[in-house]
């Protein structure tokens, strides 16, 4: 099988993808890594080899706070989207009998995605504001005397927006994993006397592990790399790593931004390498 001709041919087959990845992934990342060692002043990048950018980032309280904030957002969002995503997927996969209905409902889940991210985010603002609909309802019905301030421009509103934006990224892979579970396994579990909860946690959850992990990867990368949701929904009051990087870019401090981006990339890679220890995605797919 492993004749030279055959090897040669398979090289040709991987060439297009390799080229695309090389040009649009490896090369940009290499550039970022290189620039992260450069120096800069107000208006210019100065090619150099300095660890200043890293030294500043790694020793600054701001970075630490931003990372803690980012982890907080990421974990909170992950937990909520996991519970929501799993429930929705479970309902779709096991409770809806007809295939047509299931597909229809699934498409229904994607409808919010027909509008842009930003619109979906901004639409919360008039809803949650001091004089917004929710507060109008609360004060109008006499449930509270003063408008509730923490609804908007707070951690609450940031996480709310994340959950709203990204739950589907959890639903889809879990739903996908669930539909491939052999129904007979569940019947067997029932026949063996397992309760519904036992069936869920002992049979279904382990079998959609790959879906959960893929969903987790989506959520973590999206939340940890985000800057606009945090900025808009916290009213600029709190900073995530993405916001720090964005600030540096807008001030043309590209080397500092590049260094922060490299640190973030490494952090996320470490998290994923731990995650993939638990689940061999390739095998499970």
């Amino acid at each position: 099988m492993n004749t030279p001709v055959r090897t040669f041919r398979s090289y040709w087959q991987v060439a297009p993808l390799s080229l695309v990845l090389l040009c649009f992934l490896v090369f940009p990342i290499l550039t970022i890594v290189i620039v992260s060692f450069w120096d800069f002043n107000a208006y210019q990048l100065l090619p150099d080899f300095t660890f200043d950018n890293y030294a500043f980032s790694l020793t600054s309280d701001v970075t630490l706070k931003a990372y803690l904030n980012t982890f907080f957002y990421a974990i909170a969002t992950w937990l909520i989207t996991l519970i929501l995503g799993f429930t929705v997927a479970y309902y779709l996969a096991f409770h809806i009998e007809s295939n047509l209905m299931r597909n229809l409902l699934f498409i229904l889940c994607t409808i919010p995605f027909l509008t842009s991210n930003i619109i979906r985010m901004i639409s919360w603002i008039p809803l949650l504001g001091r004089n917004g609909l929710v507060n109008g309802l609360l004060t109008g019905s006499g449930m509270v005397d003063q408008p509730v301030e923490w609804l908007l421009y707070s951690d609450f509103s940031v996480i709310l927006a994340f959950v709203h934006l990204y739950t589907l990224f959890m639903v889809v892979p879990i739903f996908n994993a669930m539909t491939r579970i052999d129904k007979k396994l569940i019947e067997a579990a029932m026949d063996a006397g397992a309760s519904t909860l036992q069936t869920i946690f002992l049979v279904i959850v382990p079998l959609c592990r790959s879906g959960i992990v893929i969903g987790t990867v989506f959520i973590l990368t999206l939340v940890m790399g985000d800057f606009i949701t945090v900025r808009l929904m916290s009213g600029g009051l709190s900073a995530s790593v993405g916001v720090l990087i964005y600030n540096e870019i807008s001030l043309l401090q590209y080397p500092a931004a590049a260094a922060d981006a490299v640190i973030l990339l490494i952090t996320i890679l470490i998290i994923f390498s731990i995650l993939f220890r638990f689940v061999d995605i390739k095998k499970e797919l």
Partner: peptide, 25 residues
Amino acid sequence: AKKAGQFRAFWKSFDESVNLMASGE
């Protein structure tokens, strides 16, 4: 001042400042 909760938000773009003011935030 930020710690004491003096600020409701910080704005970066023109539109944001208009919305903050118009909505009474």
